Computed example of a mutant assay.
Amino acid sequence: MPESLILDADAALWSVEPADVAGRHLLLLLHGYGADEHDLYGLRAYLPETLAVVSLAAPLTPPWPMPGRSWYPIDGLDGRDPSHVTAAAQAVIEWVDAHAPGAASVGLLGFSQGGAVSLQALRLEPRRFAYAVNLSGYVTPGGLPRDAELAEAKPPVFWGRGTHDDVIPAALVEHTTQWLPDHVDLSGRVYPGLTHSVSEQELADVHVFLEKRLTDAAPPPSSDDAGDRP
């Protein structure tokens, strides 16, 4: 088993003051392999303004000469070992418990490795996260103890990927295609011509997905409104 991982809280980039996240809907951004916390933070302009956003830094350094950070190894004998993906997801959960316990809801948005970690975190804590956005990522093979609970809860998941993405192995794409519909409320799109990247059309679709999540989370109108009184 891999050692426990701890995320660098000082590296996280917040769109609001951390003390102001209580009662807000929070979206966690999880970058891809070789990137860092700055990579997805620039997507804030494409996201609903009412969301509080925090971009996390992965805990590992990839082998030289790859720059940036990584959530788990993808090279060597333990490359893409499911236990390493689980360790990264557990570190994300522990970060949320420590730094955002008062958030009204917590959603996950990850690219590539970050997408895989987001889905793994959802599997570890099916009722802790409101939804997940998986961009060019995949579901890690192998069962987890709460997969049946996830299938019962069926949280919303958006999965976007490109037809020309040659980074994620075909076997993992096929596994994800088969696995997700049985365990989550799946929506998404395959983008013609898109490589291992994110397009403006995809971000527009993500915006619609996130707005729907915020609408679903809004409290119903109060029966005490003046217009409802006899």
Score class of each variant (00 low, 15 high):
Ile6Glu: 14
Ile6Ser: 14
Ala9Gln: 13
Asp10Met: 02
Asp10Cys: 05
Ala11Pro: 01
Ala12Leu: 04
Leu13Phe: 01
Ser15Cys: 09
Glu17Trp: 02
Ala19Cys: 04
Asp20Ile: 06
Gly23Pro: 02
Leu26Ser: 00
Leu27His: 02
Leu29Ser: 09
Leu30Cys: 07
Gly32Phe: 05
Gly34Arg: 08
Gly34Ser: 11
Ala35Tyr: 02
Glu37Leu: 12
His38Trp: 11
His38Met: 11
Leu40Arg: 09
Tyr41Val: 06
Gly42Ser: 07
Arg44His: 10
Thr50His: 13
Leu51Trp: 10
Val53Ile: 15
Ser55Leu: 07
Ser55His: 09
Leu56Phe: 09
Leu56Asp: 07
Ala57Gln: 15
Ala57Lys: 13
Ala58Val: 02
Pro59Trp: 02
Thr61Asp: 12
Pro62Ala: 11
Pro62His: 02
Trp64Thr: 15
Pro65Ile: 13
Gly68Trp: 12
Gly68Ile: 08
Trp71His: 01
Ile74Thr: 13
Ile74Leu: 14
Ile74Glu: 00
Asp75Leu: 15
Gly76Met: 03
Asp78Tyr: 11
Asp81Asn: 14
Pro82Met: 00
Pro82Ile: 07
Ser83Leu: 13
Ala87Gln: 10
Ala88His: 09
Gln90Arg: 15
Asp97Cys: 01
His99Asn: 14
Pro101Gln: 03
Ala103Asp: 00
Val106Gly: 00
Gly107Leu: 00
Gly107Ile: 09
Leu109Glu: 08
Leu109Tyr: 01
Ala116Gln: 00
Gln120Arg: 14
Leu122Ser: 02
Glu125Ala: 15
Arg127Glu: 15
Phe129Lys: 08
Ala130Gly: 01
Tyr131Thr: 11
Asn134Trp: 07
Asn134Pro: 11
Ser136Gly: 15
Ser136Asn: 04
Gly137Trp: 05
Tyr138Phe: 15
Val139Leu: 12
Asp147Phe: 04
Ala148Cys: 06
Glu149Gln: 15
Leu150Thr: 12
Ala151Tyr: 05
Glu152Ala: 15
Glu152Asp: 14
Lys154Pro: 11
Lys154His: 06
Gly160Tyr: 03
Gly162Tyr: 05
His164Ser: 14
Asp166Gly: 02
Asp166Lys: 10
Ile168Asp: 03
Val173Ile: 12
Thr176Asp: 06
Thr176Asn: 05
Thr177Pro: 03
Leu180Lys: 06
Pro181Ala: 06
Val184Pro: 00
Pro192Ile: 11
Leu194Ile: 03
Thr195His: 14
His196Phe: 11
Ala204Glu: 14
Ala204Cys: 05
His207Arg: 15
Val208Trp: 08
Phe209Leu: 01
Glu211Lys: 04
Thr215Gly: 08
Asp216Gly: 08
Ala217Glu: 03
Ala217His: 04
Ser222Cys: 12
Ser222Asp: 14
Asp224Ala: 14
Gly227Thr: 12
Gly227Met: 06
Pro230Phe: 05
